[in-house]
Design a binder for these strands. Structure first.
Lengths: 182, 182
DNA sequence: CTATATACGGAACCATCGCTCCGTTTGTCA
DNA sequence: TGACAAACGGAGCGATGGTTCCGTATATAG
């Protein structure tokens, strides 16, 4: 691979990463190209579709989260590990808008992402069940419920322009609501 | 106003109401016209923009909710009234997709809707504060937090194709999380 | 029944956006 | 340094969707 191609590929990834993180997936490809100082043609040679570019960015991040969930499932305190994980998800989702899109799966039908989502659900499920067995989390919820609650809230918070303080308050409600009753 | 015009206007409203409720705002205007058995031109004479049509539909519904919140603020049991209200919001949001869009305000910049949203926030605020004073709801959340939590969850649930059972579980988490600690 | 204002239908217009195509430029190897 | 494969740029295509325009149809007043 030629040196300029390599350089441009990396640069596109960086620019797209920053742009999708702050403005979400709705940004046109032309705009990404413009910000990278490249033509659209160049961009499309490196990434065959917009979805592919998006996937290249989010995959790594999602994998990281899956690893984190798996690590949490082996932690000493199951309850603490579970709550630490969802706190991290909130932070990640708030910092990177494309994250929410990826997990919501709205129009993103990439197989690779679907596969990661499946692994993620499994990892969260293990983490959750362990916390439930330890008596740290109520038993009448499952992994999808938790994911929907957390990501839905972050998404809504983002749209309302909520800041860190608001997110913290809302997460506190969810965390307390997830604890066993009584 | 001519009789046929009157009739068509009402018919368009009915069709659009049903369509937006089940499929959301993303449905093209041409499709609404097709389902109503009318040309797009006719539709645009009655409602100058898609947004205007949307506003005509959602306004009434939002007003109803505001009335409900105000009634709740005069109810005997403040805590019960508050929780009944958010339960109703979940049901309403689940049954009518456009509701969520209206409250999220995503691309809907109509003044009239903004005004109703303001009244709604005030009404919910009154309801909430009364419940807080009665000791039924934790004190470290405000009306916007509650709205974001509830609507965000319903929205996410909708996107994940969650059913009534899932919604009930997630609402239970939020409700319990909103109760005072200890 | 006729005249006419009113309403209707839908082809066409315009903007947006993902993506392709191809003439031009540039890195690299001998 | 030349030759050529590789990479680049960006005009333009096709699809989608909101909106407009105007020739045709129709309700209704006189």
């Amino acid at each position: 691979m030629r040196a300029d191609a390599e350089r441009n590929r990396r640069h596109v990834l960086e620019v797209a990463m920053a742009t999708f993180a702050t403005e979400g997936l709705a940004v046109p490809i032309d705009e990404i190209a413009r910000r990278a100082g490249l033509g659209v043609g160049t961009l499309y040679r490196h990434f065959p579709t917009k979805e592919a570019l998006f996937a290249a960015i989010v995959e790594g991040r999602l994998e990281e989260l899956v690893d984190l969930a798996r690590a949490g499932a082996r932690a000493a305190d199951p309850g603490a590990a579970f709550f630490a994980f969802i706190t991290r998800m909130v932070e990640e989702g708030a910092a990177k808008r494309d994250f929410l899109t990826a997990l919501a799966g709205k129009g993103v039908d990439l197989e690779r992402i679907a596969a990661i989502k499946l692994r993620m659900r499994r990892a969260i499920s293990a983490l959750l069940m362990r916390a439930q067995r330890a008596g740290a989390v109520r038993r009448d919820v499952n992994a999808v419920d938790v994911l929907t609650l957390v990501m839905g809230t972050v998404h809504a918070a983002d749209r309302h322009g909520a800041g860190a303080a608001e997110r913290r308050r809302m997460l506190a409600v969810i965390v307390d609501g997830l604890r066993p009753r009584g």
